[in-house]
């Protein structure tokens, strides 16, 4: 369910952010964000709303764990 993709925040105007992926831009609502999102952050976008901030550090760390198959890290 729930098609949602990561998009990068390019600018923020109140409850609305301009987000971008591969040159495609659109406006999404930030009403549901628990954490502060800033320009340059990636957010997960679902049905026109940002629902989660993607943690880039965490992503890189996860990837390292995946690559080394250190599954006990979870």
């Amino acid at each position: 369910m729930c098609l949602a993709i990561p998009m990068e925040i390019k600018s923020i105007d109140g409850p609305v952010a301009n987000v971008e992926i591969s040159g495609v831009t659109k406006q999404v609502r930030l009403d549901l964000m628990s954490e502060e999102a800033s320009v340059g952050d990636y957010v997960i976008v679902h049905a026109g709303f940002a629902i989660s901030r993607l943690d880039r550090e965490q992503a890189l760390e996860t990837l390292e764990i995946f690559k080394e198959l250190r599954l006990d890290a979870f």
Binding site: M33, I51, S52, D55, Q58, T62, F74
Partner: peptide, 17 residues
């Protein structure tokens, strides 16, 4: 129950949503 998607899923979810 294990979180295999930590870059997107905080353990506490999204309290505001």
């Amino acid at each position: 129950v294990v979180n295999g998607y930590p870059r997107v899923v905080p353990d506490a979810g999204n309290p505001k949503a």
